[in-house]
């Protein structure tokens, strides 16, 4: 069968909402798009361990420490699922990590902001995981089977993460004056970067066209961002915190909140490496990987000796 015919059949399957599985025909652009998007997603889970990992040793109660450690472990597990799902596209995890280290693969820019106070553990869970869930719920219906199934599993855990974050920030918002200040400060610092997590406006998102046509992406950046804002504003109000956007107001006609313009210069700067923690996050990952090289070699050498016995 000719390539053109195969592509037509492929698109028909997509249009009929069938899932594409690893051994099925897929156009090379579809495969490459998925590798780029899924590996970026997996790297985000793994790099995302760092800002929260930064506070595990300083968690203020046994309960908080247990929950945060379990949560960060979940993120590692999510990274693992998605790396495995990505490997079904014919690429190894080693290659994906090498691309990350060379700066060829990206991860979510939100993790390039520092986690400065305990309230940031609240803001990250509430806003960052909240934004991630909004995106991932939509991705449960993505056309690639392994990716879709990993999203279903991940979403279950993410909703626990968001509640965990909201609980931290809500407790601080009704705490001492200093705690309230920390809670508001965390919201101020994480609000805009959280909105940036959905990516550029649809009009400036060059890859959205193909991603929507192939149903890798089911809803656009702007639609998802609006949904996140609409559900989050009342959560902030409930605990007495103020969203740091003077232009934020309810639009009766649209049934949604209008909001101020995102600082896109900041967005693109952080995407391109110019953020407060870009260097630190990548160096941390490289160091752990390099420090672990002798352990991986030892495990491989031992396994080989066992095979030869």
């Amino acid at each position: 069968m000719g390539a053109e015919k195969l592509e037509v059949l492929f698109q028909e399957r997509i249009d009929a909402n069938e899932k594409i599985e690893p051994r099925d025909y897929m156009p090379e652009e579809y495969r490459q798009h998925l590798i780029r998007q899924m590996s970026q997603h997996a790297h985000s889970e793994v790099i995302g361990m760092q800002p929260e990992g930064n506070w595990i040793t300083r968690a203020p109660s046994l309960r908080a420490k247990k929950i945060l450690l379990a949560k960060v472990q979940d993120e590692a597990g999510h990274g693992l699922y998605i790396y495995s799902a990505t490997e079904t596209l014919g690429i190894t995890r080693d290659e994906l990590i090498s691309r990350l280290h060379k700066g060829k693969a990206k991860y979510a820019s939100i993790f390039n902001y520092p986690a400065l106070t305990w309230a940031d553990m609240g803001a990250i869970g509430w806003l960052v995981d909240g934004a991630a869930i909004t995106n991932q719920v939509s991705l449960q219906k993505t056309s690639y089977g392994p990716y879709s199934r990993s999203m279903v599993k991940i979403c279950k855990e993410e909703s626990f993460h968001q509640r965990q974050g909201y609980e931290i920030i809500a407790a601080m918002a009704k705490g001492t004056t200093e705690q309230k200040e920390m809670a508001q400060d965390a919201l101020n610092r994480f609000w805009w970067p959280s909105l940036m997590m959905f990516g550029p406006h649809d009009s400036d998102s060059p890859r959205t066209g193909n991603a929507m046509k192939w149903k890798i992406k089911r809803e656009s950046n702007d639609v998802l961002r609006q949904r996140f804002i609409d559900k989050t504003v009342s959560q902030a109000e409930l605990i007495g915190l103020t969203i740091p956007d003077p232009d934020l107001k309810w639009n009766e006609e649209r049934g949604s909140y209008d909001f101020g313009e995102i600082d896109w210069d900041e967005f693109w700067s952080v995407v391109k490496g110019g953020g407060p923690c870009n260097l630190k996050r990548l160096n941390h990952h490289k160091k752990a990987h390099n420090d672990g090289a002798w352990v991986r070699k030892a495990a491989a050498a031992h396994a080989k000796k066992q095979l030869n016995k």
């Binding site: 793994v46 361990m49 760092q50 990992g53 590692a76 693992l80 990952h285 752990a288 420090d291 991986r296």
Partner: peptide, 11 residues
């Protein structure tokens, strides 16, 4: 946490 020699062992 986040310093393991590979992801499975980190977990």
């Amino acid at each position: 946490c986040s310093k393991g020699p590979f992801l499975e062992e980190d977990i």
